[in-house]
Design a protein around this nucleic acid. Structure first.
Length: 705
RNA sequence: GGGCGACUAGCUCAGUUGGUUAGAGCGUUUGGUCGACAUCCAAAAGGUCACAAGUUCGAAUCUUGUGUCGCCCACCA
């Protein structure tokens, strides 16, 4: 018996060597799989890794995410499939730029005023460093992905093909340039899509102002300088005496103005006085109303969040400073009717940075979502793809049934530049300059525009041989991506390839701490999968991620749980020690298994049955059950029951009885190693190295059956 | 305002299609072992499976309602 079994199992000393061994074997690349695994009838099995953002290390969510997929891939590889797990990294446009700008800020610098190419290069270097760290994290977790196919969203061929998609969509009328109301982040100087923003309940003063014969309510007095239209509901009896489009003279902030009444159903009779004035440039609702009645639109707040000259004496003042001053002035003019200090409303913030978003009007590129959403729903109805976590299907459908055109322009450099050119009022869409006098659109694509094409781009769409792996087998990702990522991949897949990029969609929940609380840096309850792996072993960490973690639900993670599986790893190690030390004089290959008693033969059969069951559980996404079953089998059945029952014969004088038990235990241990491998790849491979029943090949490609 | 989910042992959670005494990890108590076990083994205490009604031979599991908590969506001036 190898001396290593004299000591308890020490994960840290074996793990990195084993990973290197796997990499050297080339088996992560399905092209290299041995004959027995890729015979003529071998099918493809493929998973595209949701590319982690290349701006930081892996967190516990990634750990769960990657482990679940790795279990699926490892199982299918052993089951004889050509299994591909394709890794990559996402440049994560705005998010990365935000992270990078914080870094600049710490250094007392700012991106504004920096040369575009210099800035890009600096972020690129910063990202590459993080990307390498992230990749070493994946290796630490034992993720068996094919590094030879590693892809980054900003590598030249991906950039070029993503731009091609835009050009094609432009030709097909699916993208357009429009001057519409956008979500503007004044601090980071870029527009955002709807899903990049969030709401926060806030308590702000709500003001009632006298506006001619009306009392209007607003929480934003600073936008009201140019309000020349007042809106009431057509059925509002309080205003029945006034006519639609009737004009009034109104004494307002900076003197007399002419105002016009509009009767439209958007006005809420229940809200305040039922009358409101509109500011199309700085409100989405008002913008839509202005478009409907073809009203003029005027900018009041500039791109930095300061008031423009239209605000008169307040010009150049930041809005939060100007607000009380404006109210004071209105008070002096006797126009303040009432102030409600208990008013609660939802304020729209930038999801990433928490900056209050200012609606602005700006020319941007939009994807027309209607036809794409329709395609996507039709395909779902056809059963082309399915949700393993049914609860997400409803959410998904609801979102798809109400598509909002997608703003894909971002005013940042960190991304794929939009292939569009301007000259005067003309626009040309192409990768090359159309000629003299044209200037390139400086904007880049929303990051989801490229990651939405990820399955296609990584597999070399349109014409690479790797497209044989398309569509992929399953998309397993976090539930927070149910809108952001998954629908876009389906839409692009259907649009470009006429086929959804995956058959099954499986969402895992959030990883919470030991008390069921969401992990966050500010709470200090963040658990790093890398730290866990280094302290307790990767195998133990992987088990803790998946046991009792059913599809679609949040899970809570504790060190105690990881520790329990560290003990399990050691238990397996000792089972091996015991069996090997008791079978050193035994020749397994030469033994006639017909000599086994019926009971003994049945034990082997049962273990085979369990193996088949574990396989079927993995295929059907019951990994939370599969992992628990194999755990209990090894501990309670193999160790506590069978092994204990064998002890007498092993130390007894009856040589034939002893031989039977030796055969039995070796056979059962082999099955256990196979069954455990997808979950606990390191320790099982380590044991396999000098296991008497191992074939010449690595356990990673040992046939499941 | 709409939707989704959860409510099972002290804590964190499993429980695939309804089927015998409801499970795990951690924690607690008792005893044993330390010649496979940086430990392990045996055993114990602890649950009216949120509440109510219904379907059924039978419900933690299906239906309806109530309560509590959490999450998501939404153009609340």
């Amino acid at each position: 018996m190898n001396e290593k079994y004299q000591k308890p199992y020490d994960a840290t000393t074996v793990e990195s060597d084993i990973y290197t061994m796997w990499e050297k074997s080339g088996y992560f690349n399905p092209d290299n799989l041995p004959e027995n695994a890729t015979g003529e009838r071998a099918e493809n099995y493929s998973i595209i890794m949701p590319p982690p953002n290349a701006n930081g290390r892996l967190h516990a969510g990634h750990g769960t995410d990657m482990t679940l997929k790795d279990i699926m891939v490892r199982y299918h590889r052993m089951a004889g499939k050509k299994a591909l797990f394709l890794p990559g990294a996402d440049h994560a446009g705005f998010e990365t730029q935000g992270v990078f700008e914080k870094k600049l800020q710490k250094e007392g610098r700012s991106r504004f005023g920096m040369d575009r190419d210099d800035l890009y290069q600096e972020i690129y270097d910063f990202v590459m460093e993080n990307k390498h760290a992230m990749e070493s994290d994946l290796k630490q977790l034992g993720i068996s992905c094919d590094w030879s196919r590693n892809t980054f969203t900003l590598q030249p061929d991906v950039v070029s093909r993503v731009q091609d998609t835009f050009i094609k969509m432009h030709e097909d009328g699916l993208v357009y340039r429009g001057k519409r109301s956008i979500h503007w982040n004044p601090k980071f100087q870029t527009s955002l899509s709807d899903i990049e923003t969030k709401f926060e309940q806030r308590k702000d003063p709500f003001y009632y102002f006298q506006y001619g014969p009306f009392v209007i309510g607003t929480a934003r007095p600073e936008t009201k300088f140019a309000d020349k239209y007042i809106v009431v509901h057509p059925d509002d009896k309080r205003y029945a005496q006034y006519k639609h489009m009737q004009e009034f003279e109104v004494e307002w902030i900076n003197g007399k103005i002419k105002a016009t009444l509009i009767k439209d159903e958007v006005a809420d009779m229940e809200m305040g006085s039922g009358a409101m004035t509109i500011t199309p440039w700085h409100s989405q609702v008002d913008f839509e109303l202005a478009e409907k009645y073809d009203l003029p639109m005027e900018q009041i707040i500039d791109w930095d969040g300061k008031l423009l000259p239209i605000a008169g004496e307040f010009a150049g003042t930041k809005i939060h400073i100007a607000r009380p001053q404006i109210v004071e002035k209105l008070q002096e003019k006797g126009l303040v009717v009432e102030i409600d200090h208990d008013y609660e409303h939802a304020v729209r913030l930038c999801e990433r940075t928490g900056v209050v978003v200012e609606p602005q009007i700006k020319d941007q590129w939009y994807v027309k979502m209607g036809p794409l959403a329709e395609m996507t729903l039709k395909s779902l109805d056809n059963g082309d793809y399915r949700f393993i976590t049914k609860q997400h299907e409803k959410i998904f459908r609801h979102w798809m049934e109400n598509p909002i055109d997608w703003n894909i322009s971002r005013q940042i450099v960190w991304g794929i530049q939009i292939p569009a050119w301007f000259k005067g009022g003309d626009i040309t869409v192409s990768k090359e300059s159309p000629g003299e006098g044209w200037t390139r659109d400086p904007d880049t694509f929303d990051t989801w525009f490229s990651s939405g094409q990820w399955p296609l781009m990584t597999l070399g769409y349109p014409d690479s041989k790797d497209m044989e792996y398309y569509p992929t087998s399953v998309m397993e990702t976090g539930a927070d991506l149910v809108f952001k990522w998954v629908p876009r991949m389906i839409m692009f897949g259907l649009y470009l390839r006429k086929e959804v990029p995956f058959k099954d969609i499986y969402f895992h929940g959030m990883v919470l701490d030991a008390r069921g609380v969401k992990m966050s840096k500010s709470k200090g309850n963040v658990m790093s999968p890398i730290d866990l792996a280094q302290n307790f072993g990767t195998d133990a960490t992987r088990m803790a991620f998946v046991v009792a973690n059913p599809p679609g639900a949040d899970m809570s993670l504790s060190e105690d749980k990881v520790r329990a599986y560290k003990k399990f790893a050691n238990k397996l190690w000792n089972i091996t020690r015991f069996i090997l030390s008791n079978t050193e004089d035994f020749d397994y290959a030469a033994y006639d298994k017909n000599l086994l008693t019926k009971t003994e033969a049945e034990l082997i059969e049962k273990s085979q049955e369990l193996k088949a069951q574990i396989g079927s559980d993995i295929e059907n996404y019951r990994i939370h059950l599969a992992s628990e079953k194999v755990y209990h089998y090894v501990w309670d059945t193999l160790a506590s029951s069978i092994l204990e029952a064998c002890k007498d014969d092993l130390s007894g004088d009856d040589d034939t009885a002893k031989a039977r038990k030796q055969y039995l235990l070796l056979a059962l241990l082999r099955d256990s190693l196979v069954m455990l491998h997808p979950f606990m790849p390191f320790i099982t491979e380590e044991i396999w190295k000098d296991f008497p029943l191992a074939d010449k090949n690595l356990l990673i490609v040992h046939p499941w059956q």
